[in-house]
Simulated assay, not measured.
Amino acid sequence: MTDNLKIILTACGCPGASTLIRMLKEVPDRDITIIGTDTDEEAVGRFLVDDFYQVPHGQSDEYIPAMLSIVETEEPDVLFPESTFEVHPLAEHREKFESLGTEVVVSDPEAIQTANNKFEMYQAISEQTDVDLPEYSLVQSHEEFRAAADELGYPDEPIVFKPPVGKGSRGVRIIDPEVDRRELLLEEKPNSLYIDMEEVEQIFADKPFPELLVMEYVGGEEETADSLCLRGDELLTSFKTVEDARWGVIVRGELVERPELLTMTQKILDAIPLSYCVNLQFIDGKLIEINPRVSTFIYQRDFLQAYLAIQLALDEVSNEDVRSYRDDIDYGRRMVRYMDQVFHTDGNRLL
């Protein structure tokens, strides 16, 4: 293990980036240089990292050439992606980055593809495991949408729909006839997920109907697993409650022991052999989605899961080294997310 480490951290303006950057900078006995990238020239991480590059969107044809150019210039040890839209293209082109001497901390592209597509993920999980899932249907027309809603018990039961591939609650809506529309308008902030069937039909009346996943609405306690794994082998997993969320991002939660969810997590990873940082969302004991990337941790100074993932990719730690941290998880530790500001002129931070 060298004394110096250079990391390219993508999507450095995402909600968890500022804390991750701070925690990596505080790793003891190692000088860590962080190069940030983001599509937004004012991404908050720009003002917290050692250097910054604005890059195209992860789904753009220009993204990989731009990232290769940055790697050639910076010669980092590791490329660590934070965005759902970046992990798959980086995984597909991993060999190009490795030929330049940079390890890419991503799963295999096939596993990422399955995890990112919720319909394919549900199919794989239902065929290979006994993990509880919501009832679901993939639809491609108004008629199929209505039929799926009827099958799920609508209007007596609420339903949810979402694109099979998406992130951050984009495109997710709940249809519940019991919800008071007047109260939503006058009492709730204008970021509600609720919509009614008539609105759905109006939105797509004269436009092509998109492919959607229609699901039963699952209420109850929400918990997420933050798992560090290698080719489907679960090494270290912590669970946290999601007690409040905004914009699809956790803002309040607590580390909890969930042995039954740990068993489910290993079954899921057996079916979809992901690597490094993986986030799994459970509601009322049912698997809702998988994010094959780093997510919000409840951090501890005595071990940092994201840094362990980097060390794992660099062969600085073994699987058993990572497993040894299982007994160190500080159950009962809580987190509260808050907003902050930076001040700059022409990209140069002032305060």
Rank of each mutant, 00 (worst) to 15 (best):
Q123W: 11
V78Y: 09
L133A: 05
E75L: 14
E42I: 12
E95N: 10
T33S: 10
T33H: 15
T102L: 07
K118A: 12
V104T: 04
E120L: 11
Q128W: 06
D132F: 05
I34P: 11
D50F: 07
E74K: 09
Q140R: 08
S83A: 15
S60T: 01
E127Y: 13
F85W: 14
G101A: 10
D40S: 13
K162S: 11
H88C: 06
K162A: 06
L48K: 10
E110K: 09
A147C: 06
V55G: 04
I125T: 03
T37Y: 08
I64Y: 13
I125K: 04
L79P: 13
E62L: 14
R94E: 09
V104A: 10
D61C: 05
E74F: 04
I34H: 12
E92C: 14
I70W: 02
E151F: 10
N117H: 14
A66N: 00
T102Y: 09
E95S: 14
P65F: 06
I35G: 12
I35K: 05
D130E: 13
G168K: 00
E41S: 15
F47Y: 15
G36P: 12
V49A: 13
S107R: 09
Y122E: 13
D61L: 15
D38H: 12
K96A: 15
A91V: 13
L133W: 06
L48R: 10
P65R: 01
I32N: 11
P134Q: 00
M67G: 02
S99T: 03
S69M: 06
E86N: 08
S60M: 06
V131Q: 08
E120H: 06
N116H: 03
S69E: 15
I112F: 12
T129R: 02
S126K: 12
H142A: 09
E72V: 04
L133H: 13
L68R: 04
F145D: 03
V87P: 09
D130S: 15
K167R: 15
F52E: 00
Y122L: 06
I159W: 05
V106S: 00
S141E: 09
Y154W: 07
P134S: 02
A91W: 11
S83Q: 13
E157N: 08
F145R: 10
V71F: 04
K162W: 04
V106E: 00
G45E: 09
D51K: 14
E74S: 08
T37N: 00
V105I: 09
F161L: 07
V104N: 12
H142Y: 07
D130V: 14
V165A: 11
H142M: 09
T114R: 03
Y53W: 12
S99Q: 15
P109H: 06
A149E: 08
L138K: 08
K118F: 14
E72Y: 07
P158R: 00
V105R: 04
V106R: 02
E92S: 15
D77A: 10
Q140M: 07
V87C: 00
P89R: 00
K162G: 08
D50W: 14
G45M: 03
V71H: 08
E75Y: 10
S69R: 08
L90A: 03
Y122G: 05
F47A: 03
P76S: 01
F161Q: 02
R46S: 01
Q128C: 03
V131N: 07
F85P: 07
E98N: 10
T114N: 01
G166D: 02
D38Q: 02
H142I: 00
F85R: 01
